[in-house]
Structures are given as structure tokens and as C-alpha cells.
Simulated assay, not measured.
Amino acid sequence: MNHQTPVFIITGGQGQCKTTFLHLVLGLIVGLNVRVRGVIAPGHVRDGRRSGFTLVDLATGEHEELCSIDPDPRCEAHGRFYFQPVGLAFGRRALAPPDPRGTDLMVIDEVGRFELQGVVWADQLDRLTAHPHPPMIWTVRRRLLDTVVERWNITNPVVVDVGTASAMATADAVMDAVWAWREAQPFSPITAAPVPGDRVAPPALFADAAAGAPRSTPVILRRCYGPEG
């Protein structure tokens, strides 16, 4: 199964909205009872330059600060960013190898130069790709794409370039992969799922907050992508 289950790689140049494209794709499948695990990392900008990232656990909707450019001796320094120990631990828990009976899709935003250097999410990626896994979506900067595919020996990559790709078509392809994964499992899939062959219907993107979330929290952080979100 590991050699047949696709890894969708959303790619583009720096600042080309890979995370935004991923958010749109997830928004298109969230109403289809897809059990999503993993992380999405919305970025922050200060004075026209990337200043840090927040990490969102897609299974729970919880979030933690991951890193910033502000020096902090308590943090791990990688490049110009200082990574919060709490944020790293939070992400590593979210990226633990999933139970295939409870996961249809695994998301990692993003796989980049730090992982290629063996830090941040590198160990989690090694574990995820070493065992049978559900379909996955990674975001990867275009110039690192070939290196990432080779490093993790991705035998069935589906490359989605944000410059030319359609979020609707990508969501449709992801759902096809999810259905193939479910049908290949020895246990029954979750109930109340769409009929195989149904096309993706776009819900209202950037919908209201999950119940109980602070209203001051950005919508992208309030959104929970699990089947109950």
C-alpha cells in the first residue's frame, strides 16, 4: 500500500500562497466526512517580511506558536527563526504515525530545508514514510521539490503547482485517493460518508468558527478540519 498511496505535493515559489491553496483544498473536502490529521502553518508578516508561523492541529483545531524571528534563548534556532519548544512538541504529536482505522488523510505544511537538514519534522516524516500510510498532502517549495521527493523516496508523488492548478480539481483527486485507501482497508470505513464517485461540492470557505473558539482568533486558526469540525 505504501507504494500505491499517493503523496500530493503542493508546490510553488516562496510567497506563492501554498498554505492558502492547501486551506482551499481542505475547505472543499471538509464537509465530506474525511478524517484529517496533521498540521497547517499559517505565516505572519512584519514590515513586508515573513516573521513567524503558527501551527494548527487539523484533527483538533488547537494551535500553538511555532516560531518567530524574535531571538529567544529558550528556543531552537534554525536559520533566522527561533522555534518554540512547546510548538515543536505540539507539532510532533500531531504528526505521529496515524491509526489507519481513524485517518483518511495526513497533511504536513510545510516540508522544507530544515527537514532536509534533519530537524523540525524530519523524524516524523521518516516514520510516516516508513510504514503504510493514508494519502498525504505536503507543501514544498518548488526549488526543493526534487530533493524532498528523493530524500523520502516518494514513489507516487502527485505534484500540484499553485501557479497552474485548480483547488477544485486537486480536492477531487484527493477524494479519489481517500476512497481508494478506504476500500483497501480490511475494516469498514466510517458511516455516513458520501457515495463513491460523488464529485466535490464547494462549501462556504472560511466558515464560522468552531464552537467555543475565541472570536478574536483568526478564522484559519479556528477552523477544525475533522469530520466533526
Rank of each mutant, 00 (worst) to 15 (best):
117 Q>D: 15
180 A>G: 06
201 A>P: 01
192 A>P: 00
143 R>I: 06
161 D>C: 07
215 R>V: 11
179 W>A: 05
183 E>Q: 13
9 I>E: 05
190 I>M: 12
71 P>E: 11
9 I>K: 05
124 Q>G: 03
97 P>G: 09
139 T>V: 09
41 A>P: 03
141 R>V: 12
30 V>I: 09
126 D>G: 03
193 A>E: 12
144 L>T: 02
80 R>M: 13
175 M>L: 14
186 P>I: 08
212 G>D: 12
171 A>S: 12
181 W>M: 05
194 P>K: 01
68 S>K: 01
45 V>L: 03
120 V>A: 04
94 A>G: 04
12 G>W: 06
75 C>K: 05
80 R>C: 11
22 L>S: 02
142 R>S: 14
107 V>P: 04
201 A>Q: 15
100 P>F: 03
76 E>K: 08
168 M>F: 12
19 T>D: 02
2 N>K: 14
186 P>D: 07
35 R>P: 00
212 G>N: 11
85 P>C: 08
9 I>S: 04
201 A>K: 14
82 Y>S: 08
219 V>D: 07
139 T>G: 01
90 F>E: 01
150 E>V: 04
182 R>N: 12
194 P>V: 03
27 G>I: 04
47 D>A: 14
39 V>Y: 02
45 V>S: 07
177 A>H: 04
57 D>W: 03
